[in-house]
């Protein structure tokens, strides 16, 4: 029961309270880049959930069993980014071979994900202290944190794409067209998400 509560805390925290895009400012480039259409946004979001989950598993294990065990934590950044880059490649190849349908829909987003700082971000956060328990993230906790951070990313991306599709038809002052109005929209969404910040699960 206690583990369930702690996983629930992590999930709610990752999706709403500490949303990767709207509160932590991670993964903004794809957020601005692929949120023009709802269908691409959904595809990108699902690909991110997938890679974040797998990356959380691998980086947690590598950090715990290799970097910490051999006391070479200073290689963390370089090892993590290489692991993520190769994971993305591997996921792409496996999907290509075994699930052409999934590859068809996610394939184009996968190369973009390597430079998505949200993936490296979640791997780094997982090496730290779990703010809800005060002790380091366990394997299960870090995987749940990875998946749920991805879900939070998908949520923000879908909301944003839905709004941007409507904004296309709106009459906006000329200098604010394009990027600026997208930022203002994101800002208003962040205001809405601030409402979750009072939530306390203890």
């Amino acid at each position: 029961m206690e583990t369930f509560m702690s996983l629930l805390q992590i999930s709610i925290g990752a999706i709403f309270i500490q949303n990767f895009i709207l509160s932590r400012f991670l993964g903004l480039c794809p957020f601005m880049g692929v949120s023009k259409k709802l269908s691409t946004a959904t595809g990108m979001g699902i690909a991110v959930i997938f890679v974040m989950t797998v990356a959380s598993m691998f980086t947690w294990a590598i950090n715990h069993f290799i970097l910490e065990a051999y006391n070479v934590l200073y290689l963390q950044t370089i090892v993590f980014i290489l692991v993520i880059a190769s994971l993305v490649q591997m996921v792409e190849m496996i999907l290509h071979k075994y699930s052409p349908v999934l590859y068809e829909s996610l394939g184009v987003y996968l190369p973009l994900i390597t430079t998505n700082c949200a993936i490296l971000g979640v791997a780094m956060i997982n090496t730290g202290i779990n703010p809800y328990s005060g002790s380091p993230f366990t394997f299960v906790e870090s995987v749940v944190n990875g998946t749920m951070s991805g879900v939070g990313f998908l949520l923000a991306l879908i909301l944003m794409a839905g709004i941007r599709e409507k904004i296309e038809l709106a009459d906006i002052p000329k200098p604010l067209e394009g990027l600026p109005i997208a930022f203002i929209t994101a800002g208003l969404m962040a205001v809405a998400f601030l409402g979750f910040s009072g939530m306390q699960l203890r």
Partner: peptide, 9 residues
């Protein structure tokens, strides 16, 4: 010592 704050220990 430490305490659990809003987003960190």
């Amino acid at each position: 010592s430490g305490g659990r704050g809003y987003s960190s220990t």
